[in-house]
Amino acid sequence: MEPDDTWTALRKQCEALEPGAELITPVSERPFGIERTAEDRIVVRFGDSGERRSLWREQFVVFLERLDEGSIAIEQLQPGVEPYASVVTLADTYATDDETIRYDVDAAGGETPFLVPATDARDPPQRVHDDAMLLAALLEGIDADDPAALDTDSLTDLYVLASDVQHGSDRLRRSAREPLLERIGPDQRLHGRYGTVRRTTRERRRPKDAETVFAALDERGIPREWVTGIDRDKLDVVLAVTDLEENEVYDVDEDVYVQKTGVDEDEKYSRLQGIADRIDDLEDTEGEALREELDDIEDRLEAALSAG
């Protein structure tokens, strides 16, 4: 394929990427997104630093000429060349494996290991945000005060989305813990817009090794039998290698619960796009009404917080 044709194909592939999709560099694995294309460049932004960089057409030509001479070893790619290599693999005449990038007339355009779909490219805070939006949209359309009256699909979606929001927000909360501890002194409180936190200390005890514990007991004349008991791990080993029955040594209680076994991220992302499209399609009057409603909610929250 001629350089002009390849360049046109690369631009089309970049422009056809779904919103939110990212590419990763082959060696350093830095994520970057396509911001726009032009006649002489493709502009990308790196997700780990926010750096914007132009990938120039003439540099693509140089890289493609090298590929015409033979395959290029991925491990030999220089950092400045890596994003060019990732973009080139979007074209339908170049392919890659774990070791090389090469010219291949049978390659399938867009099928590259360096392309991360939008559903997978979101970072944890984005996932929490998106799941919370989906949960809010679901709650607007159902009566969650009476779960037993919900149809099975809605009840399942409520459970799955609530679980996703819970786990995602809990991970986000834990990520904020250490930075907060660095800013809170003893007996100090920090006040945010929505609440207050303080430093709390709790002790977690674990027994010392058996020799140390027994020595301390012997020194004070305390019988060792007072602290010795059944070791569950050892008991499980005995159950595994003998004919001892579980019900002979364990009281077994059955706890029935609902377990989330799968999440359809593609469906969630599609639904998110639908919500975003509806917001974009709001007419000016509806958009203004929505903004006024949000401002009113914010004012009432401010008043409530001030009164408290």
Rank of each mutant, 00 (worst) to 15 (best):
A107C: 15
L305E: 01
Q76G: 03
E22H: 10
L77S: 03
E293L: 04
F46G: 03
H167L: 02
A148L: 13
E18P: 07
R189I: 01
P117D: 11
D209N: 09
D157K: 15
F214E: 04
D92K: 15
L305M: 05
E265A: 05
L90P: 07
L239C: 02
G47E: 05
A137D: 13
C14S: 10
V160F: 04
P186S: 01
K260Y: 00
R122Q: 06
V237Q: 12
S28P: 02
A21L: 06
V43F: 02
G33A: 09
E178G: 02
R30Q: 08
Q166Y: 13
R174H: 06
K268A: 01
S49N: 09
A176L: 09
R183G: 00
R11N: 08
P26V: 02
I230N: 06
V238P: 02
G185Y: 12
E182H: 12
Y84I: 02
V62Y: 08
N247Q: 15
M1K: 09
E75V: 08
R206G: 01
I142D: 02
V249K: 11
D5N: 11
E245G: 00
E254W: 14
A108P: 11
R206S: 00
D68V: 05
E248M: 14
G195L: 12
D106K: 13
A215R: 15
G141C: 11
A73H: 15
D253P: 01
D255W: 13
S86T: 05
P223S: 03
E18K: 13
G141S: 13
S169K: 08
T152H: 10
W56G: 00
A303Y: 11
T6Y: 10
F60K: 11
G50Y: 12
T25K: 08
V256I: 09
D106R: 13
Y250Q: 04
P79G: 01
T6R: 15
E225Q: 13
I230F: 06
D231N: 05
D209A: 07
E29V: 03
G192M: 13
L235N: 02
E288H: 04
T228K: 12
E203M: 09
G20C: 09
A137Y: 07
S86R: 04
Y250L: 03
D251L: 08
L17H: 02
P19M: 07
R57K: 15
A73S: 14
G229D: 11
K208P: 00
V241N: 02
A38Q: 09
F32V: 00
D123L: 09
W7Y: 00
E82N: 13
A149K: 11
R171G: 00
F32Y: 07
R66H: 10
V81M: 05
V213L: 12
G192W: 14
R41V: 00
D123F: 07
